[in-house]
Amino acid sequence: MSPLQLCVAFSSVLFAVGLTGALARSNSILVLLGIELMLNAANLNFIAFWRYSPAPSPATGVIFVIFAIAVAAAETAVGLALVISIYRHQRNIRLQEATRLKG
């Protein structure tokens, strides 16, 4: 098993853990956490392929990761604000009860 395979396997398992968490839990904060984990797993791939690419261009992978982290920060900020907003409306943060926007 080459190191690159190990890295990608690592990120896959982390992704699967995040997905499982997001699907299993009913607390919206934990769902958000699962999504964060999935994002991190994706970032791991960027760094891994940058690390083992034949001719690593100066900083592409790192730059991708930095942008992804910035976007994730924005996402978390809005997500948490939404959680607080949901909490204010229904006095709990159970995601399966927040179904008012259904078609």
Partner: peptide, 8 residues
């Protein structure tokens, strides 16, 4: 009907 509003 598919739009249940359930995020999960």
């Amino acid at each position: 009907r598919a739009q249940t509003g359930e995020t999960h």
